[in-house]
């Protein structure tokens, strides 16, 4: 009796909880929500919704947000937040389309533009991480500062003008289809798969969960917490860079207004997906489903010629409901 001291009444809700709020149960809820939106889509849009082209449109719409959401999932799982991803994405599109970069890309290969975007994004993320981990500034403030600074820098570089992509190889590649599916959707799928493996199968992912679950325990177990936090924000910056490349491919132009308010969509998708804002639990599948729910919803509203204002009201409602459900779970699991 002495060593198995959890009381029976405490056990009963545990069982129920393990089914409903276990990873499978939570994702099942999201799948049901997505299915419901699709049912509404078919009922109101019929052929226009169920069409393959429309499905690809939804996925293309989801791709950029989805890739950035993968990095954000790591940040939020570690107990942090990154408000700067939208601005950083904008900055990467501008930097990759500057005259210098494009000239170099024409001479060498369009991969130079891609590399530029990825490096700019990663460096911005590492700066966030360094300020948070070593400067001990709370993530909200540090990334809020980057949100302002990166957008400002993008405006300075581009002089607030749209910079079209003139390297034809670049646009050819990113606007192409592979096996009938757009390249940027493939990229989304690859990044999601890599994110899942990184979170669930590597020491990096384990450290992320440990830092988010109990930073003090992680530190006292010998994990280099500060360095890990640096890497996590670097990763978020990298995904913003990838998102920037995809955005360039989709729009064929770089501008400082790319990714405006993207951070809100990304955070909403991750949180709706079931990653706890307090950290310690993250789900890549959930984030993917969260992104798909929002993009499908947008699609249904557009097909029905409903205003973006109505869309935003629906989005807001979904976020509140999801977070309320999440809090109930967190409260129950936090009471000893």
């Amino acid at each position: 009796m002495s060593t198995t001291t959890h009381s029976p009444p405490a056990d009963a809700p545990t069982e129920r909880r393990s089914w409903l709020s276990g990873p499978a149960g939570r994702n099942l809820g999201l799948v049901v929500a997505l299915a419901l939106i699709c049912v509404v889509g078919v009922a109101t849009g019929g052929e226009r919704f169920a069409d393959l082209d429309n499905v690809l449109t939804i996925l293309r719409l989801a791709a950029v947000t989805g890739v950035v959401a993968m990095g954000m999932t790591f940040v939020i799982t570690s107990g942090g937040i990154d408000l700067s991803v939208g601005s950083v994405l904008g900055l990467t599109t501008v930097w990759a389309t500057t005259l210098a970069t494009q000239t170099m890309a024409e001479d060498v290969h369009w991969i130079v533009m891609v590399a530029t975007a990825l490096v700019v994004g990663t460096v911005a993320g590492l700066i966030n991480g360094a300020i948070i981990a070593y400067g001990r500034v709370v993530p909200f403030i540090a990334t809020l500062a980057m949100l302002a600074a990166a957008r400002g820098l993008a405006e300075m570089i581009s002089d607030r003008r749209t910079q079209p992509v003139s390297v034809s190889g670049f646009t050819d590649f990113f606007r192409a289809d592979l096996l009938g599916i757009p390249v940027i959707v493939w990229i989304f799928a690859l990044v999601a798969a890599a994110g899942w493996i990184l979170l669930n199968r590597t020491t990096f992912g384990r450290r992320t969960v440990a830092v988010g679950g109990n930073v003090e325990a992680a530190r006292l177990a010998g994990i280099k917490v500060q360095r890990h936090i640096l890497y996590i924000y670097g990763l978020a910056g990298l995904t913003a860079g990838i998102g920037g490349v995809m955005m360039l491919g989709r729009t064929t132009a770089g501008t400082s207004t790319h990714g405006l308010l993207l951070e809100l969509d990304v955070i909403a998708a991750v949180v709706v997906g079931g990653t706890l804002l307090i950290g310690g639990r993250g789900t890549i599948m959930g984030s993917v489903l969260g992104v798909l729910i929002f993009s499908t919803l947008t699609n249904v509203f557009v097909l029905n010629n409903m205003s973006t204002s109505a869309q935003n009201v629906a989005k807001g409602a979904i976020i509140v409901i999801a977070v309320l459900l999440q809090q109930r779970f967190a409260q129950r699991s936090k009471t000893p």
């Binding site: 590597t202 020491t203 440990a210 679950g213 109990n214 006292l220 699991s333």
Partner: peptide, 27 residues
């Protein structure tokens, strides 16, 4: 200070050693 409460028992036990048993970053 000691435990990541939501995590499994084995992950708490190996919190200081998972990186050592991992191979090239793979758990």
């Amino acid at each position: 200070q000691g435990l990541v409460l939501d995590e499994a028992v084995y992950r708490n036990i190996t919190l200081s050693t998972f990186a050592r048993t991992a191979r090239g970053g793979w758990l």
